[in-house]
Design a protein around this nucleic acid. Structure first.
Length: 563
DNA sequence: TTTGGCTGCCC
DNA sequence: ATTCTGC
DNA sequence: GCAGAATGGGCAGCCAAA
């Protein structure tokens, strides 16, 4: 397939916001795609070259793409930075610059989808000295042979940000439509295979082939996710009468696959982390019965001396580690908290109820404190007991609770009403805006991220940035309004980043105050978001570092960390 | 040899 | 992770 | 309510620059 044909589809998809129209456009393309190319085209439509479960990484993002654009177009880095700030999309920047260039050199080879796919696929293979320039050249070569529009989408594909409003939902519906199969059959096949390329191939060869798909132990599946509510009343509203309350621990979500003697561990984003946590494999073999299984768990770090749980930041040292793994396993051991089972001894348990799945867990797991346990839970239909469970969980220092409908099925990869997350809301901070970053995509013409300061005497110290909780449309605090108000106070511009004179106070909510190695105040906020403008306050009223420190010391701590 | 920019992925 | 928005 | 697209801090590893 010519890459230009694919780009036409991208343009069509980008043009409409309607999902049904997107489905129509995409299903047409899929119908006209040969079996040989189907997989690649599906990946490219998702803005990738690999399926979700594939662990290869391109190792190329905005800063390196910028170099490729510079090489291919001859424009300086500064010029590209300027355009990027203005347009908010490196793809469109490449398009503009290649337009200028193309007027001079008109003859180039026609790009095929395969050529684009193959060049990008080569990126992960490059390692060692000279890697960066080789990667840059590989993409520059594609850009040089591309039409301006093709350049736009090549850049976005490498960035894995296609921005045409297509992700798994539209792809699912398009496959169903293209091959005349029910959406729910396509969805189920994807739950099992986790690869829309393969699903499309099966769908093309018919309903029977799609239905014969089964789970592949050792290949990660997507996990079920809870919806968040802020009030316990909202949780009651969404849940059935009987509720399973579970404590929420602040560790890593890990799914454990066992098939015969082989055990593999995967994160929520499907990365294989078996090597990082090898020390738990013998525990699993000893304490969990069964020839094959898939378990849903949270790994939580604890202090080996005091046996107390540790905050997330401690065990975050372990997840991506490649060196000193064994040493780390000793100084930062983890406890396996099992809360679900999706597959057992050859049987897929997605359609079983939570009650049934938990029953299986209780039969097969032999618990050992600080090694392997079933997540602490309470099953009740009494509101008072639920409230008490929540309160006590917070008192224990846990992150919060998860409420689950007792008869809920397991829905891989979905945020569903059957699972509800409740965490406490911390006291907010009033902080001053001291900088900003120009936005991308939909937010291209606005300042869309804001640097925050807290007061120390007459000065302001950085305490992080904030970019969510602000509205694009409608009522409330909008990006447009903030940009307009702050623009006159911009003191300095560096690429897409600006410094802003302290003027405007905003109220910020967050989950936790952390010690920060990057910000000058020494603190940063975990999951910050904007609640409202405080134009009733002047910069003198900005919360100071002492108040931040006071909150830091007062907040939930599951263990005293000695550092 | 050290430092720092960049990327990808945990939350 | 949280949040907003169009369907 | 779902799906998609914006955005946060911090960490390890890799490579290039200092």
């Amino acid at each position: 397939m010519d890459y230009s044909k694919l780009c036409e589809t991208y343009l069509g998809l980008e043009e409409t916001t309607k999902r049904l129209e997107k489905t129509e456009i995409l299903s047409k393309l899929l119908k006209n795609t040969s079996v040989e190319e189907l997989k690649e085209i599906i990946y490219l439509i998702k803005g990738r070259v690999f399926p979700d479960w594939d662990e290869r990484k391109l190792g190329m993002s905005s800063k390196l793409i910028l170099k490729s654009i510079s090489n291919a177009s001859g424009a300086s880095k500064e010029k590209i930075e300027r355009l990027w700030k203005k347009i908010g999309d490196l793809g469109k920047v490449a398009e503009e610059l290649m337009k200028d260039k193309k007027q001079r050199t008109l003859h180039n080879k026609k790009l095929t989808a395969k050529k684009v796919f193959d060049n990008i696929k080569k990126l992960p293979e490059l390692t060692g000295e000279g890697t960066v320039s080789r990667k840059v050249n590989l993409i520059a070569e594609l850009l040089s042979n591309a039409t301006p529009v093709e350049a736009r989408f090549i850049v976005r594909t490498v960035l894995e940000e296609l921005r045409v409003g297509v992700a798994s939902g539209v792809i699912r519906d398009s496959i169903a439509k293209a091959f005349n199969i029910e959406v729910k059959d396509v969805e189920r096949a994807f739950e099992l295979l986790n690869d829309y390329g393969e699903v499309a191939e099966k769908a093309k060869s018919g309903k029977r082939s799609l239905r014969s798909v089964s789970i592949n132990v050792g290949k990660p599946i997507k996990v079920m996710l809870p919806i968040r509510v802020n009030l316990i009343e909202d949780a009651f509203k969404a849940l059935g009468k009987t509720v399973q309350c579970e404590i929420k621990l602040d560790g890593f979500r890990v799914q454990i696959h066992k098939k015969g003697e082989d055990i593999s561990l995967f994160t929520r984003r499907l990365e294989n982390v078996t090597n990082q946590f090898k020390e738990i494999l013998p525990i699993l073999k000893k304490n969990v019965k069964g020839d094959s299984y898939i378990l849903d768990t949270e790994l939580i770090g604890f202090n080996p001396k005091t046996k107390k749980y540790l905050p997330f930041q401690s065990i975050s040292h372990r997840i991506r580690r490649k060196y000193d793994i064994e040493k780390m396993a000793k100084s930062l051991p983890v406890e396996i908290n099992i809360f679900d089972v999706m597959y057992y001894n050859g049987k897929n348990l997605f359609d079983k109820t939570l009650k049934e799945r938990r029953k299986i867990l209780e039969k097969i797991v032999n618990e050992e404190r600080r090694k392997i346990v079933l997540t602490e839970k309470l099953i009740t239909d009494n509101k008072k007991s639920i409230e008490k469970f929540y309160k006590e969980s917070l008192n224990e220092g846990y992150e919060g609770v998860i409420f689950k409908k007792i008869d809920s099925e397991y829905k891989p990869g979905r945020y569903v009403k059957g699972w509800i997350k409740l965490k406490p809301i911390m006291e907010t901070l009033d902080l001053v805006i001291i900088g900003g970053v120009w936005g991308e995509g939909k937010r291209a013409t606005w300042l869309s991220s804001f640097a925050l300061g807290c007061r120390k005497g007459n000065k302001f110290l950085e305490i992080g940035k904030i970019g969510t909780g602000i509205k694009e449309k409608s009522e409330g605090v909008t990006f447009k309004q903030l940009t307009k108000e702050l623009k006159p106070y911009i003191e300095e511009t560096k690429g897409r980043t600006v410094k802003i004179k302290p003027k405007l106070i905003i109220e910020i909510a967050y989950e936790e105050i952390q010690k920060s190695p990057t910000y000058s105040s020494g603190y940063a906020l975990r999951f910050p978001r904007l609640l409202r403008l405080r134009d009733d306050l002047s910069i003198k009223d900005c919360d100071d570092i002492e108040r931040v420190r006071k909150f830091y010391l007062a907040q939930r701590k599951i263990s005293e960390e000695k550092k």
